[in-house]
Amino acid sequence: MTKPRFSNDINIKNRQAGYEYELLDRYVAGMVLRGTEIKSIREGKVNLQDGYCYMNRGELFVKGITITPYAQGTHYNHEAGRERKLLLKRSEIKKLEGKMEEKGLTVVPTRLFINDRGLAKIEIAVGRGKKLHDKRDTMRERDAKRELDRLKLK
């Protein structure tokens, strides 16, 4: 049996965000998509690594996310690296706007998934950049946890 080309159980994570930032608050937002973007997302052809969010005229946009153009798309295919508008409640946008104005805080995408209604959603998080020694501490804790799990299995 072959794997279906399109899948509804998409869960694409940005593991680099947890390494680079101390994640404080998380929000789930909808995305405004064009044309064949949802087909590429259902194929799992998304890269969240370089993504970040910014405010423009009271609206939140995500930039740096790459959704690979759909292979069977025609001249109506989408642009891979375009910025996309995020759909949040007004109160959530106000909270994020206040946090983005604080020094050292940024908003990064952490996960892209398709919910049970078949809509593409993106999880964004407010993060504070880690220093090099913080990154080392994170790696040390992760290695210690892995060793403990290994010992428990024996």
Results as ranks from 00 to 15, higher is better:
34 R>F: 09
145 K>Q: 13
24 L>W: 11
90 R>K: 15
41 I>H: 04
134 D>Y: 02
63 K>W: 08
44 G>V: 04
32 V>W: 07
46 V>R: 07
52 Y>L: 07
38 I>C: 05
94 K>L: 08
8 N>C: 06
75 H>S: 11
24 L>A: 06
154 K>V: 07
124 I>G: 01
91 S>V: 10
130 K>Q: 08
65 I>L: 06
56 N>P: 04
133 H>R: 12
22 E>H: 09
149 D>A: 11
64 G>W: 03
69 P>L: 02
124 I>M: 01
81 G>A: 12
72 Q>H: 11
132 L>C: 05
11 N>T: 06
13 K>H: 13
83 E>G: 09
79 E>F: 14
90 R>C: 06
121 K>S: 00
83 E>S: 15
91 S>W: 12
35 G>M: 00
68 T>H: 10
20 E>K: 10
28 V>Y: 06
96 L>P: 01
9 D>P: 03
3 K>A: 11
25 D>Q: 13
106 T>S: 15
89 K>E: 13
62 V>D: 00
72 Q>R: 10
108 V>R: 05
97 E>R: 08
36 T>I: 02
37 E>T: 04
25 D>Y: 13
22 E>C: 04
89 K>A: 14
10 I>T: 07
121 K>Q: 15
123 E>R: 08
12 I>L: 07
40 S>M: 00
148 L>G: 08
141 E>Q: 14
37 E>K: 03
54 Y>L: 10
3 K>S: 12
